[in-house]
Simulated assay, not measured.
Amino acid sequence: MATEQRLAISYCRISTKVKGKSVEESVGYQQQEINNYAKQKGLELIREFSDVGYSGKNTDRPELKEMVEYLRYTELKIEELIIYSIDRFGRDLQHNIKQMLVISNLVKVSFVTFPISSEADSFKFMFLLRTGVAQDERERLLMRCASGRSNKILNRKSFDGNYYPLGLIKEEDSETLISTSPSKIVDLQQE
């Protein structure tokens, strides 16, 4: 008697689009780990969903939406949704909680890099904790990047981008940036 293959789907996300690389190449390392996990657990991966170029803070990701709709309406018996890591699922605490409540009512959810599934007693606690860490990491990364850009601009004493760093303005008739003061700022709302 042949055993019926257990079916699974996967979800990957990466926030940057690499010029000249396909979606598969951009999330290839995630998908490879997911494939290994599925094989190890005896699951047949029948569909892959990947959002490339979407921040984890972005709650309007087309493949994530399509995946939820697929889970709601497919006639196939999907056993498991496999995701590389919680931060690849998303980096917005409120959105992650809402989405995971919907998804985990439809299918078992497992994460590869932090081996926990929605069937574990501690899943909600660990998911909440790891999502909070993911959101905090995102905010810290943004602050480090902004600080790095600001320091680079201050060291060069000129600016060639679109947005001035906070607290700096462009000197009239020059590319030089200077520190600002309340007397030098025009309130755009009062114009």
Rank of each mutant, 00 (worst) to 15 (best):
N105K: 13
Q31E: 11
S122N: 15
G167M: 01
E44V: 10
T180R: 05
G42R: 02
R130Q: 10
L93I: 13
T74V: 03
Q5R: 06
E80Y: 06
A146S: 12
K170N: 07
M1Y: 07
R6T: 08
L154W: 09
M1C: 05
E139W: 01
G90W: 01
I178H: 00
V27Y: 06
Y37D: 02
Y84G: 10
L154M: 08
L141V: 12
E137H: 09
V186D: 01
D121R: 08
A2R: 10
I34R: 05
Q40V: 12
L71I: 06
T180N: 14
V27I: 13
E137L: 09
K41D: 12
L177M: 01
E191I: 11
K21R: 08
E75S: 12
F111L: 10
E80V: 04
V102F: 00
L81K: 04
Q99I: 01
F89D: 10
Q32M: 00
F89L: 15
D87L: 05
S15L: 08
R91Q: 13
V186M: 05
S183N: 08
S122K: 13
S150Q: 15
L43C: 05
Q30D: 12
L142I: 11
Q99V: 00
R138P: 00
Y164H: 03
L43I: 07
G90Q: 01
I83W: 03
L93T: 14
V52A: 08
I116R: 02
K108E: 09
I169P: 03
T59R: 00
S55M: 07
Q94K: 10
Y11E: 08
L64D: 02
E171D: 13
L43Q: 05
S118M: 03
N105C: 07
L81Q: 02
E191A: 01
V186A: 07
R144K: 14
Q31F: 04
D121W: 13
V186I: 11
Q94G: 00
D187R: 06
I97V: 15
K41C: 12
Q135H: 08
L177Q: 00
L7E: 09
L101R: 13
F111Q: 04
L128K: 15
S104D: 11
E119V: 02
T16C: 08
G90I: 00
V133F: 15
E80I: 04
L71Y: 05
S50P: 00
Q40A: 15
A2Q: 07
T113L: 02
S174Q: 08
L177T: 02
E171G: 11
G56N: 01
S10C: 04
I82H: 04
E33T: 01
F111S: 03
S104N: 15
I116H: 01
E66R: 15
S50K: 05
A2C: 02
I169A: 11
E25A: 09
Q135D: 11
I14L: 10
E24W: 01
P165V: 07
L188T: 14
H95Y: 13
F111T: 03
D87Q: 05
M143G: 08
T3F: 08
R13Q: 07
Y73T: 15
N35L: 14
D136F: 15
R72I: 04
P182M: 06
C12E: 14
I34G: 12
E119M: 05
E69M: 13
E69Y: 12
T74A: 09
V133K: 14
